[in-house]
């Protein structure tokens, strides 16, 4: 008798592909929220697999804070060109110029939270009825209770206490006009699963994830990349160190880790040995105990 079983990565892949196909079938105009980070890269890869040999029926939406790592932008443009994808950019800078949002002041100023407004505006203007994200439930405690299909009201808000029950593999994407969904196909993946999958699938990654020399400075235990977007205090000294990034987001709130990991195998070893979560390097989560929950309710990713 044959042994019909899938290993866990294959099973997770199959589940994610199933969800991406549900999105294509249940929604008129979905987009993938693409940040250039590893999770949105994996989601895009899964979308290529889900509809092969046809093209991906989603637009990539990049919410651009203007404070990017150049490497992430280059990677994005190459990926789009190589796979014939559609890309749309929602700009935080434009929203600031138009006076829709106000830039934070002070040393810890970040445009991270400001992303919510241009994101919701882009969703409304382009009539996206579903935005696919790369969030995982193991990342953060508010995310542990997020559904695969997460309903948003006409203001783009999340109501964690009134979520639709989600059973078996039946997903209910019905909504009223003006409402939309956030869908998270890799909800069940862990950071380790993502890296193993990248390794298994030989997915090309932005160079930021690998060990390199960079000018960095320390603030509150986090090492930040030196950039014109960050105001430094007097006692903060820029030094060149060998680092890499475990997550890639807005440059002003993404911390680097000291690391010699130069290959995917090295990164996997490092993740296996790591005693801190990847969001431990994210300043945006440290603002309060429920920082992520508050941002999510307001319509953040």
């Amino acid at each position: 008798m044959n042994d019909y079983h899938l290993n866990h990565l294959k099973e997770l892949e199959s589940e994610s592909i199933f969800i991406l196909r549900e999105v294509a079938a249940q929604f008129e105009n979905p987009c993938i929220l693409f940040s250039g980070g590893k999770d949105s890269i994996v989601v895009t890869h899964l979308a290529l697999k889900a509809f092969y040999p046809a093209s991906v029926p989603f637009t990539l939406l990049h919410v651009d804070t203007g404070h990017n790592f150049q490497e992430a932008l280059d990677y994005r443009d190459e990926l789009v060109a190589k796979n014939g994808l559609r890309l749309l950019i929602a700009s935080v800078q434009e929203a600031i110029d138009k006076g829709i949002v106000r830039e934070e002041k002070g040393f810890n100023a970040s445009r991270n939270a400001l992303q919510t407004v241009p994101l919701l505006e882009a969703i409304e203007k382009n009539k996206f009825d579903c935005a696919i994200g790369g969030a995982r439930r193991d990342e953060e405690k508010a995310r542990a209770k997020e559904r695969f299909f997460s309903h948003r009201d006409e203001f783009g808000q999340w109501d964690p206490k009134n979520q639709r029950p989600e059973l078996w593999n039946i997903f209910n994407g019905r909504k009223h006009i003006g409402e939309h969904f956030r869908v998270f196909p890799i909800s069940n993946w862990t950071e380790m699963d993502v890296w193993q999958y990248i390794y298994q699938e030989k997915i090309e990654m932005p160079s930021l994830y690998f060990s390199h020399k960079r000018n960095v400075f320390e603030r509150d235990g986090v090492w930040y990349a030196d950039s014109p977007y960050m105001l430094k205090k007097e006692n903060e000294i820029v030094e060149e160190r060998v680092v890499r990034f475990r997550t890639v987001g807005d440059i002003t709130c993404t911390g680097a880790v000291f690391s010699e990991a130069a290959t995917l195998e090295d990164i996997i070893q490092e993740v296996a040995a790591s005693r801190t979560t990847e969001r431990g390097t994210r300043a945006d989560d440290k603002r309060s105990e429920a920082a992520m929950e508050d941002r999510k309710k307001a319509g953040y990713f």
Binding site: Y199, V257, Q269, R275
Partner: peptide, 14 residues
């Protein structure tokens, strides 16, 4: 916060 790579038992990818 930093990640240390010392004291790692070899993680078996396969």
């Amino acid at each position: 916060m930093t990640t240390t790579t010392q004291e790692i038992e070899n993680f078996d990818s396969k």
